[in-house]
């Protein structure tokens, strides 16, 4: 966590955007997170996160089609930018390094 810092929720949002690939817009991201992580996500929290990530340049967005159920409003589709990908990789790497550095006995609970 040196150059780029993102929070846990932001990381989840970015990963979900990547998972959904071409179908990542507000509601679908929210539902995906809710289903996979089994936690409630408010529109407000998610929208702020998306907005912030876009400002940082980790996400990019473009308008898609409008539907009747949305009151004629267009969807905004998100995708992860190359920079975003780099950040995610870095986060994973840091985690991995930490995991690798755990001495094998630390999690050996047989005698604990």
């Amino acid at each position: 966590m040196n150059k780029y810092s993102i929070g846990e929720f932001e990381e989840v949002v970015m990963l979900t955007v990547a998972v959904l690939y071409e179908n990542a817009y507000g509601i679908s991201i929210k539902e995906e997170i809710e289903n996979r992580l089994e936690r409630k996500v408010s529109v407000g929290a998610m929208r702020t996160a998306l907005n912030r990530l876009e400002k940082k340049g980790y996400l990019d967005s473009e308008f898609g089609e409008a539907t009747a159920v949305r009151g004629g409003k267009r969807k905004r589709y998100f995708k992860v930018t190359p920079l975003g990908k780099k950040v995610l990789e870095q986060v994973m790497q840091t985690r991995k390094q930490l995991w690798d550095s755990i001495p094998s006995v630390a999690f050996d609970f047989k005698f604990g």
Binding site: Y25, G26, K30, V43, F63, V69, R74
Partner: peptide
């Protein structure tokens, strides 16, 4: 700059 899709998202959820 956010209003369009935010409002859209909310109407979709509402529906």
């Amino acid at each position: 700059s956010l209003i369009e899709d935010v409002e859209g998202d909310l109407s979709e959820l509402y529906a």
